[in-house]
Write a protein that binds this DNA or RNA. Sequence first.
RNA 1: CGGGGCGUAGCGUAGUGGCUAGCGCGCCUGCUUUGGGAGCAGGAGAUCGCGGGUUCGAGUCCCGCCGCCCCGACCA
Length: 571
Amino acid sequence: MLRMSTLFLRTLREDPADAEVPSHRLLVRAGYVRRVAPGIYSWLPLGLKVLDNVATIVRQEMDAMGAQEVLFPALLPREPYEATGRWTEYGDNLFRLKDRRGNDMLLGPTHEEMFTLMVKSEYSSYKDLPVSLYQVQTKYRDEARPRAGILRGREFLMKDSYSFDLDDEGLKKSYEAHRAAYVKIFDRLGMDYRIVSAVSGAMGGSASEEFLAVAPTGEDSFVACTNCDYAANVEAVQIGTGTAEAAEHPPLEVLDTPDTPTIETLAAFLGVTAGETLKNVVVKLRHPDGSTEPLIVGVPGDREVDLKRLEANVAPAEVVAFEGEDFAKHPGLVRGYIGPQGDLGVRYVVDPLVVDGSAWVTGANVEGKHARNVVMGRDFTPDGTLAAAEVRAGDPCPRCGSALSLDRGIEIGHVFQLGRKYADTFSLDVLGPEGKPVRVTMGSYGIGVSRAVAAITEQSYDDKGLVWPRSVAPADVHVVIAGQGEQQEGGNRLAEELEAAGLRVLLDDRHKVSPGVAFKDAELIGIPTYVVVGKTLAADGTVEIRDRKAGTSRAVPVSDAVAEVLAEVRS
RNA sequence: CGGGGCGUAGCGUAGUGGCUAGCGCGCCUGCUUUGGGAGCAGGAGAUCGCGGGUUCGAGUCCCGCCGCCCCGACCA
């Protein structure tokens, strides 16, 4: 039993000044977590209970699907990460340190390398596969900008698992098993989530899906079809192509358009809509080997270029800004007046919304001049297409054509068919039935355990405080003693009976606090059911059972209280 | 990395260059109180982020640094 008279807890009457998002604000106010450094948090008793509850559910379902738990160190040697190139690839996001002998070490951001090496060192026969291993472990990523409390921290708790199979079919099965386990986990956590197609990116694998907790504070945008079950991260969505009118277009015409370096000024000057213009955005690609290459992307003028989406489509290259000095190196690029016609000397691609036969108003590659009736296929031919335009609500679903909705989500899980990238690097083979080595294929699967705590909070709170789902609440029931003497005794007795009935009980047995404080704290702490033992006990022998979420209250005789609470908690 | 905001007690904050840096919450002692963040009395707690400068005098003005929070990592 947790007794508030001795519980290590201090709630705050006011919101902390540095917290903005609800989960951060409330987890700090209610005394669940405390900040130690940017993106680094301590867990207080109540918070740790929730964190443990989430981890327990994750473990139960991972065990149930046949995965086995192991634990790697967070402190790791450089070599394995050097072998896969991630020592460099991770850049500043990697926490690096040296031991006393000057050897490079790191704090693990994720553990593909270590799991691969462990399986390699232990297993050597096809008879040993498939196998899935997982751990619940603290990860370290030196984020450029940690934000939103524990939603994006530099140290966080993650469940990562890895499957090892002989062939693609086996990998698919392991993947599906993980996916199914994740569905159970997030259902049990009481979360509102979507499974969306994700970008495989640099990892090179095929299938990849993200579990996104729907929340306005989420960092990921995703689309979902309003008709069919299609859903995808905006970085991965393939919206339909544009349409071209069959009509013959008048010949290309160059116009004087002084002082119109932006789409806005151009559209206003010519009296056309932004959607009729072709916006040509110059970026720079930085390849893994460090070399850079300019790239121009053409998108309809009424759309922004979605850099994350573009980057997902040019992986493993990174997209970086094309700056003033870069323009100096490419005098053919007239800032504000770039058009795809003519020889730009730079690779030019268009978004799929720009199609053959479509006519555009676009730059004339001369300061102060634009061109109209610039027809793709007639006046210019791009070097390819790359999905880069921002996706909008209402865009057509690629599967059924219905309108897409656009929402934000918090990435709480990711399932991913890795393939043989790591197996190749470390030559992870097992001996096959024919006596020949078979290269193993892998999947990797993650759940942000600490992030899930915050994500649950983001989905479940009100103006009074937290409202936990029963499955993760720090206690099953919160008994509030609002009164002295008989109420004190009655409350203590009830709490003990509830505990004897198998419930986890939080008892507010603080003598000196006024009932108002006790109520406010109960609401802030957010245990779904709380029982008030107070004046009604003396008056008519009843206690109140309150539902935190609904805000409802009902009086029951104290003798029935245990049964009533049990019924509610077990429902 | 760029932009914006902010650093005053555990938390939230006030503070025209001028007395001993103020208030609320929290904390400690005592008495009263006990169904919606109690009252009274007394008390502890601050190198005003750090360093330099201007000044008779700096929390306040100037310079530099550090830290934190938010936004953006792009509109040609």
